[in-house]
Amino acid sequence: MSKDQPQLVAKRICDRLATYFKQKSRTRYWIAVVYYSPDDCYNLFFNARRPRSWQRSWPIGIIKEADLDYLIAVLNAIHERYHFSYEYRQFQPLELSRLRREVKP
């Protein structure tokens, strides 16, 4: 099955993210990107943390059929709208270094 353009996927993710992004003061926001091996996909979560309050984490996207080039393109497209930092989990060291090198910080 052909995949949607990374820009289109990024737009959907940003639209979902926008419903949770409240721009509260003294709050750290970031996106967690997880390789989920049982489904061979990437899960994306929008996280928020405030001092002396719970940390929140909302699912904002799933990218099926894990493909690192495609993920990098999606993350760079998200970066065009929001400059949140990315946290990578469950990636192999080589993949991790590519992500750190090729995804805009």
């Binding site: 943390r49 405030r50 001092p51 002396r52 309050s53 719970w54 940390q55 929140r56 984490s57 909302w58 699912p59």
Partner: peptide, 14 residues
């Protein structure tokens, strides 16, 4: 009943 503790991660159900 949840303590205001930033170690606690709260997520919505799916």
């Amino acid at each position: 009943d949840l303590p205001n503790d930033d170690r606690l991660l709260v997520v919505p159900p799916r």
